[in-house]
Simulated scan of single mutants.
Amino acid sequence: MKKNFFERFSDRVVCITGSPGAFVGVSLLVVIWAVCGPIFNYSETWQLVINTGTTIITFLMVFLIQKTQNKDSKAIQIKLNELIASYEKASNRLVDIEDLTEEELDQLHKYYEKLGKLSNESKPSSNSAGQQHRYK
């Protein structure tokens, strides 16, 4: 599968910016900027340098991070769908659940919470004789 330029670029940038080396490098830049404060008499230009730099970087990174999260989310959804499809007793009613509204998702969440509570209430106690022999 051939990736387009933007995918290759964004994957690489996200990898680099998430590395310890990038964190150390940016931390050093902030320290250098702070040390330069007295040299430039804490001028407006001195403040503008860091404000402008961080704003531009943050603005661009938001898009790269969102792209990466979207890609990861799609991959996880596909993997989960594959697991559901491979288990013959599994219900596939929730395969396209990501297309539901927030309100519909909240309703489903409440339903499955109730279902989980009912399931826990109907399970036999873990102190039963059958359970003790199985784990000894």
Rank of each mutant, 00 (worst) to 15 (best):
M1P: 02
F5P: 00
R8F: 07
F9M: 14
S10E: 04
R12E: 03
R12G: 06
V13E: 00
V13S: 01
I16M: 08
T17V: 15
P20D: 04
P20T: 06
G21Y: 04
V24S: 03
V24W: 03
G25L: 08
V26N: 01
L28K: 02
L28C: 13
L29G: 12
L29H: 05
W33L: 00
A34M: 13
G37M: 13
P38Y: 15
W46D: 01
W46P: 02
N51D: 10
T52I: 13
T58H: 08
M61H: 08
V62C: 13
L64M: 11
I65V: 11
K67R: 15
K67A: 05
K67C: 07
Q69T: 06
N70H: 07
N70M: 11
K71T: 04
K71R: 15
D72Y: 05
D72T: 06
S73G: 09
S73H: 05
K74Q: 06
I78V: 10
K79C: 03
K79V: 03
N81F: 02
N81G: 10
N81E: 10
E82P: 00
E82V: 05
L83D: 01
L83W: 02
S86A: 13
K89R: 04
A90F: 07
S91W: 02
S91V: 04
N92G: 15
L94I: 06
D96T: 12
D99N: 15
D99W: 10
T101E: 09
E103V: 12
E103K: 04
E103Q: 10
E104P: 02
D106G: 06
D106C: 06
H109K: 14
K110V: 04
K110G: 02
Y112V: 07
E113I: 08
K117V: 09
L118A: 07
N120A: 09
E121F: 04
E121C: 02
S122C: 09
S122G: 03
P124L: 14
P124T: 12
N127C: 12
S128N: 14
A129P: 03
G130S: 15
G130L: 11
G130E: 13
Q132C: 15
R134P: 10
